[in-house]
């Protein structure tokens, strides 16, 4: 399937979107912990981010070394247009499915 998104990939992508220009490793990790109560490891996060970048869903640039990072630069990520549309597609697909489940009204929560 083209533009397939795994569950974890989707969460990472969403978080990157939510964080806007501040999306880098630790920030993404913390945001995900707050929102999902899961604890992704930095390793898992970077593997996924690399993959998302290869697929063209995010773009990245380096910058912003701080003392807490031992002087190492951060890599910031941002959603690309493709990334946004993939998220939209995924959402639409799900909404359709949910609508078609009998006895489940998402409108009423």
């Amino acid at each position: 399937m083209k533009n397939y998104l795994g569950e974890f990939e989707e969460l990472v992508l969403l978080t990157v979107g939510v964080l806007g220009v501040d999306a880098y490793g630790v920030a993404i990790k913390q945001e995900m912990e707050v929102r999902t109560r899961k604890k992704p490891s930095i390793g898992a996060l970077h593997t996924t981010l690399n993959r998302l970048e290869q697929k063209g869903f995010v773009k990245s640039w380096e910058g912003g070394a701080t003392a807490a990072r031992g002087g190492r630069r951060k890599r910031f990520y941002n959603l690309t247009a493709t990334g946004k549309s993939v998220l939209q597609e995924a959402h639409t697909l799900r909404a359709q499915f949910l609508n078609d489940i009998p006895n489940l009204s998402i409108d009423n929560g």
Binding site: Y24, G25, V26, K29, I42, G43, H46, N50, E62, A65, T66, A68, R69, G70, R72, R73, K74, R75
Partner: peptide, 15 residues
Amino acid sequence: HLEVIEGDLLEMYNL
């Protein structure tokens, strides 16, 4: 990826 990951891990370490 070393620099970025190391940076992230150091940040976590500090936290």
